[in-house]
């Protein structure tokens, strides 16, 4: 048994190493003072400074942020209302099953199928309005669609765990529906809504495939920019950009973990 424990630990450490080695390499070469090759030529922060003078990268960062913020706000609203509508009303069983299935579609199907469906759908919508040319609007619509499903699933699980007691008590005390929503249900739901919004935001920042299919020339986001760049050549500037994205991810993950853990403790 002791031998097995040692073996398990070795494999586990090797696995963690395997997960992190590429990422550490990116961070390492982002401060390497040479434009070409992978030989250590001394420490520099030049690549980071140059990032902030690169118009394209700044524009891409701005696009990424606009996309994530707008789609998160809309999808959190839609998803929360949808979750309440699904959980708090006496729908027949069959209808519940169908609604449940619809919510699970974006979770289950490969992104690329959804992206393909979006391309075709926007192709038809373009016949109606030039608003649907490939670009930021299309990306926002596509992101809202899959985020809404995720938000609704998370808020709904929170609704289930809240139960009906508090709402019944509020009704007994003659709370009308707007009052009940504002003073009872929404405060109780807040942790679920925030968790859903954070998930939606992260999903949007993280998404590559759906953005790749729906983006236009003026709506390049950071993942798209990095992808296009590394297909040509890999430069230290891209390492620097990726390292920043990586750090933002680390901060967000730690924030999310903290938040969900606090909610569980309370």
């Amino acid at each position: 048994m002791r031998k097995i424990r040692v073996l398990v630990n070795i494999v586990a450490v090797f696995t963690l190493f395997f997960l992190y080695l590429p990422l550490l390499a990116v961070a390492f070469f982002s401060v390497n003072n040479t434009k070409y090759g992978l030989v250590w030529k001394g420490f520099t922060l030049d690549w980071y400074i140059k990032l902030f003078h690169n118009e394209l990268i700044l524009q891409a960062a701005w696009n990424t942020l606009v996309l994530a913020v707008v789609s998160t706000i809309v999808s959190t609203l839609l998803g929360t209302v949808l979750a309440i509508g699904m959980d708090r009303f006496p729908w027949p069983r069959r209808m519940n099953t169908v609604l449940d299935m619809i919510l699970h579609i974006p979770v289950i199907i490969p992104d690329i199928i959804f992206a393909a469906a979006m391309v075709v759908a926007f192709g038809f919508l373009r016949l109606l309005s030039s608003m649907f040319e490939p670009g930021l609007i299309n990306m926002i619509i596509a992101h809202i669609t899959f985020q809404t499903a995720f938000v609704a699933l998370i808020v709904r699980s929170r609704l289930v765990s809240i139960g009906k007691d508090v709402e019944e008590a509020a009704r007994d005390l003659h709370a009308d529906t707007p009052y009940l929503l504002r003073r009872v249900l929404l405060p109780l739901l807040t942790p679920g809504i925030v968790a859903g919004a954070m998930l939606a935001f992260t999903l949007s920042l993280d998404d590559f495939i759906i953005s790749f299919f729906t983006a236009g020339p003026d709506s390049v986001t950071l993942p798209l920019y990095i992808f296009a760049a590394v297909r040509r050549t890999v430069t230290p500037q891209i390492h620097a950009l990726s390292t920043i994205v990586l750090l933002v991810t680390v901060i967000m993950v730690i924030g999310m973990e903290r938040f969900t853990r606090n909610v569980q403790v309370n």
Partner: peptide, 11 residues
Amino acid sequence: WTNMVIRTYAW
């Protein structure tokens, strides 16, 4: 949660 493009090109 790290972007898949970064994780892939890191290789």
